[in-house]
């Protein structure tokens, strides 16, 4: 059961996701109370183990915020992160869970607005489900 204040763990690349999150905070945008942000040096560090562990430990959803394709400082970290997210989404479906519990979100460093919107959209998805 998802509570009214779902727990969302956001794994954020320090090159894009983190600055976007900080931008959202500096703009004073609404972010849910249940949001927990984890900084990663690169989207490529978003290992399947971390993402699954977050769900295992009680998160209602996991979001991976990484760079847009072509922008990764380490060339392919974001692409690999997306592949892992897709792999886990398939697995979630197979065990009878919504794949929307793990999502990949490319963002630009200065897009606080988009960051807040994506998190809100995820909350809506979870509550709607």
């Amino acid at each position: 059961m998802v509570s009214k204040n779902p727990k969302i763990v956001a794994f954020c690349c320090e090159e894009s996701g983190m600055p976007a999150y900080e931008h959202a905070v500096s703009l004073g945008l609404d972010l849910p109370d249940g949001l927990k942000v984890v900084a990663l040096p690169c989207g490529g560090k978003a290992e399947t183990g971390y993402l699954m562990k977050a769900l295992d430990e009680g998160a209602d959803a996991v979001m991976v915020f990484a760079c847009y394709e072509g922008n990764c400082k380490y060339v392919r970290g974001n692409i690999r992160a997306e592949k892992r997210v897709n792999y886990l989404r398939e697995r979630l479906e197979k065990i009878g869970l919504s794949p929307e519990k793990i999502v990949f979100c490319p963002v630009a460093p200065a897009s606080g607005q988009r960051f807040a919107e994506l998190v809100q959209r995820e909350v809506d998805t979870l509550l709607g489900a």
């Binding site: 290992e47 399947t48 183990g49 699954m52 562990k53 769900l55 295992d56 697995r91 065990i95 009878g96 869970l97």
Partner: peptide, 18 residues
């Protein structure tokens, strides 16, 4: 070791859900 972690989480989540 990594796969043990991922699989254990998946099994726990699935069983919790069920």
């Amino acid at each position: 070791e990594k796969e043990v972690g991922v699989l254990a989480s998946q099994i726990r989540v699935a069983r919790q859900e069920a």
